[in-house]
Design a protein around this nucleic acid. Structure first.
Length: 353
DNA sequence: GATCCGTGGGG
DNA sequence: TCCCCAAGGAT
């Protein structure tokens, strides 16, 4: 078996089975020589970091409708971008998205660098994303390694080394497969294969275009690969969120610090989230009342249980923390999911249970 | 290299 | 219910 045979089989499959996605150039346009728009490739790749295609779709449409090119995005207000990103998670991506757009405009004449190394210098663009943009948008034979490629490669070559330690080994194997011709299609084919056939749990090896080449399949271990070192259990933290309203409909919100969890996003003032019973920390003097029930939410590395308290604040109130947002400007969808859950619990009609 | 950083869907 | 995990990057 030659690596070239594997690449040819993969591209043959891709030409007939490629998924239609909003940020891809369709076969008809591609045959006409149309190249993908680097802005759309970049935006989609940032959104797709650790995020499923299904979750990204609507966000991609909203972003490109509102900001059709990198120049438009570069002039957007921070709070508008953060609000548009709300619910998609990993909010550092949105902060770096803006930094990157502004750097492209101010340092690169409004055009994305056309090489992997050039792209790597931009905020929010790491090894994966740089290689993906360089190959898809600019036809550079860069090796693209994401979770799909790691899985496909580990199975194809029956690599038993567990992740994340196997990363360098898998990257070297993926590099062997990367062709000079159509490297972008090759990369997308690897990822499509991993997303639709060579899936984590129950791969459908029976219809895999690479079955004849797959060492993991031959040895009967494909489904068990890649091996992974076990993860630590998630602890549970507890906190109190304070949802203050004024009679005129304004709500008391707080912009979170740029760094850290939910950085740069709006949220309800609250206590720290700790492993023990939280010490009350209301943002203003008021008759705070506990809302029945609780909010449960799981972040990447801990579970959170939140108690919610509400109060009607006087129109002349001068809270120690946060700022009032007029009811006409407030939209719960602009908040990260855990904060939206707090709003939903507090807004629920009392059911008596 | 190890940690931190969201969310929703699937088994 | 619980765990896994998805087109990762920054520190």
């Amino acid at each position: 078996m030659r690596d070239e045979d594997i690449g040819a089989a993969l591209l043959g499959w891709y030409d007939t089975h490629a998924r239609v996605l909003p940020w891809r150039v369709g076969p008809a346009d591609r045959a006409r020589g149309v190249r993908p728009d680097p802005y759309r490739v970049w935006l989609s790749e940032i959104m797709l970091q650790q995020t499923t295609v299904a979750a990204v779709r609507d966000y991609f449409h909203r972003f490109t409708a509102r900001w059709p090119n990198v120049a438009a995005l570069a002039t957007a207000r921070d709070e508008d971008v953060m609000a548009e990103w709300a619910g998609l998670g990993y909010y550092a991506r949105a902060r770096n998205l803006l930094k990157c757009a502004r750097a492209v405009v101010s340092d690169h004449g409004g055009r994305f660098p056309e090489t992997r190394d050039g792209l790597l210098t931009l905020p929010g663009i790491g090894p994966y994303t740089a290689a993906a943009i360089a190959s898809i948008a600019f036809d550079e034979a860069a090796t693209v390694v994401d979770g799909n490629v790691e899985r496909v490669t580990a199975r194809l070559f029956a690599v038993e080394t567990p992740l994340p330690g196997a990363k360098a080994e898998l990257t070297a194997l993926a590099a062997r497969l990367t062709p000079r011709e159509r490297p972008g299609d090759h990369a997308q084919a690897m990822m499509d294969l991993g997303a639709t056939i060579c899936t984590p749990r129950i791969p459908t090896c029976g219809i895999c275009p690479l079955r004849a080449f797959c060492k993991g399949q031959a040895e009967g271990v494909a489904t068990d690969l890649p091996r992974k070192t076990p993860k630590a259990a998630k602890p549970t933290r507890y906190g109190i969120a304070y949802l203050g309203r004024r009679a005129d409909g304004a709500v008391l919100l707080e912009r979170r610090p740029e760094r850290g969890l939910l950085g740069g996003m709006l949220g309800w003032p609250g206590t720290d989230w700790t492993g023990a019973e939280p010490a009350p920390a209301p943002p203003a003097e008021a008759n705070w009342r506990e809302v029945p029930g609780e909010v449960r939410h799981t972040f990447t590395h801990f579970h959170l249980v939140l108690r919610v308290e509400t109060a009607l604040l006087p129109v002349g109130a001068n809270p120690q923390r946060g700022h009032f947002v007029p009811g006409t400007e407030f939209r719960a969808d602009d908040l990260p999911t855990v904060m939206r859950k707090v709003h939903d619990l507090a807004s629920l009609p009392a059911t008596g249970d």
